[in-house]
Design a protein around this nucleic acid. Structure first.
Lengths: 104, 104
DNA sequence: TCCAATATATAGTGTATACAATATATATAT
DNA sequence: ATATATATATTGTATACACTATATATTGGA
């Protein structure tokens, strides 16, 4: 009866890095980030996931926002851009071989 | 003044995936895995990190081992191989764009 | 004006890392 | 044979994510 555990190993992690990465490409509000990042993993991120992460990034001054209507449009700061580059470098160092292993 | 806070965003995560990935390339004992995975992030994984992770993978029958002297040589199982391929596919879906952004 | 939809936010919980400290077993060198 | 180094393992603590559930604020339309 559907003992279909979809996947044993979870891919939970690196959310703040993903947010910063998306903000290097576009200005987005929380809800849009929840859509974009969620679509890559199969389901939209819930408010309880995205907003605490944005709060953390704001506190660390890696992102800032401007209120437009009821939305808060987020932008990456200069500090955030630097941070994102450093983290990306470390990320690649760790996962380089995982990525190269291209399945035919 | 070295305000060199090394990195604000952590890259904690995906350890079991990393272990499985390494075991698709070679048979290794726990200590060797701690070395290899640790070297990619800058410091060797401690016993308190690597052994619980191996215990989890054993319980899930994604890896098996053979005792050789004081070492336990780990091998990925068929189930583990399948799992690793699924997880890799999802991993790439999530982080594809991160990786493409190659810094010159 | 007031209601529904949108967007944001917090509280509480659980899991997976990750560390230090400690313990135990085995192998190797002397 | 015994001391030292190696390898495995557990305990306790801490943190980052991510979820569900609930709450708040704001906007735009009826």
């Amino acid at each position: 009866m559907s003992n279909e555990s979809p996947q044993i190993i979870s891919l939970k992690g690196f959310l703040t890095f993903q947010i910063l990465h998306e903000l290097t490409k576009a200005k987005l509000c929380g809800d849009e980030l929840a859509d974009i990042i969620g679509s890559k993993k199969g389901s939209k991120l819930t408010p309880g996931t995205i907003y605490p992460a944005l709060k953390f990034l704001r506190k660390k001054k890696l992102v800032k926002h401007k209120k437009i209507g009821r939305k808060k449009i987020y932008t990456i700061t200069e500090k955030g851009t630097k941070e994102c580059e450093i983290v990306r470098k470390n990320f690649l160092k760790i996962f380089k071989t995982v990525l190269k292993t291209s399945k035919k």
